[in-house]
């Protein structure tokens, strides 16, 4: 009897903790969603009424639309480059033994450790120097941003693709070769499909990290060439109205949909 009650309470306590943690994570999101419909320009609780005005304001403020397109371009290109290079690196690191292998691994993962603002400043100075000596303008250009963001997409890819490669039983590849598949066919028909889940996850995470990056990009944008997170930040400097909440909500929904679609193809919980 007492044991039953103790167990009951323990389970109840566990549920309570889980609910609290979720609340803690979700409260800001819920508030953002809520605020984006407030009719008051100056955010106040409770609101006087509700409106969709801020969403149309997002559209009318061209900085957001332009920032959105810019972010989309940067994220997509950085993802493509990062996933291609990162996958090759992951294959080399997991499958081959060569001097400097551990160092290379550390080096490729290091952008995740260096604070974005520090790396961004370093890149800014570097870009200026390149412009000085080589007359090649990178600061405040798409190429410059992509180059910077590849530093973010490669580590994610290396991590996720390595993990999926490590999990592949080598004897499955041996079996393919035993059945008459040469190395390339074995990769195409066996290895690649088996690491697909890792690749999709890498692409998704690369895209999201690049899309929502603020710190690294801060110094690398210029007037008229701004990513969405920076457009939001700049807007915030002048005005705090629910437009910001509306933009954020759009961004959250977008990323959420992206994850849901991806999850239909590969179970993300299994790879990440």
């Amino acid at each position: 009897m007492t044991i039953d009650i103790a167990r009951h309470w323990r389970r109840w306590a566990l549920h309570a903790v889980v609910v609290l943690v979720y609340l803690f994570i979700l409260t800001p999101v819920i508030f953002i969603g809520w605020i984006s419909f407030f009719s008051n320009e100056i955010i106040a609780f409770p609101p006087d009424g509700y409106t969709l005005r801020w969403f149309s304001n997002v559209w009318e403020q061209r900085v957001f639309a332009r920032g959105f397109v810019m972010s989309l371009q940067v994220a997509f290109i950085s993802m493509l480059i990062g996933v291609s290079l990162g996958t090759l690196a992951a294959i080399a690191i997991v499958r081959y033994r060569f001097p400097g292998r551990d160092t290379l691994n550390m080096l490729l993962l290091s952008p995740l450790i260096v604070p974005g603002i520090v790396a961004g400043t370093a890149l800014y100075i570097f870009y200026i120097q390149i412009d000085n000596y080589l007359e090649w303008r990178l600061q405040a250009t798409l190429e410059g941003l992509v180059l910077a963001h590849v530093m973010l997409t490669i580590p994610w890819t290396v991590r996720l693709v390595s993990a999926s490669l490590v999990g592949i039983d080598r004897s499955v590849e041996d079996a393919a070769m035993n059945l008459g598949a040469n190395r390339w066919t074995t990769f195409r028909r066996v290895t690649f499909p088996m690491m697909r889940a890792g690749l999709v996850a890498a692409a998704l995470f690369s895209f999201i990290t690049s899309f929502e990056n603020l710190e690294l990009s801060l110094l690398l944008v210029g007037p008229g060439r701004t990513t969405l997170p920076i457009a939001i930040l700049q807007y915030l400097e002048f005005k705090v109205d629910p437009t910001i909440a509306a933009v954020s909500l759009i961004q959250i929904v977008l990323i959420g949909v992206l994850m849901l679609i991806t999850d239909r193809f590969v179970k993300l919980s299994r790879v990440v």
Binding site: A175, M177, N178, N182, P193, M194
Partner: peptide
């Protein structure tokens, strides 16, 4: 290995996890 005509059965079976039984055998 792919030019030797041997048929090997591995200790862990090493089936292709992403293919059906038919596809495995057809490979």
């Amino acid at each position: 290995p792919y030019r030797r005509n041997t048929g090997m059965v591995f200790q862990g079976y090493a089936l292709f996890p992403h293919m059906t039984v038919n596809q495995n055998v057809a490979f």
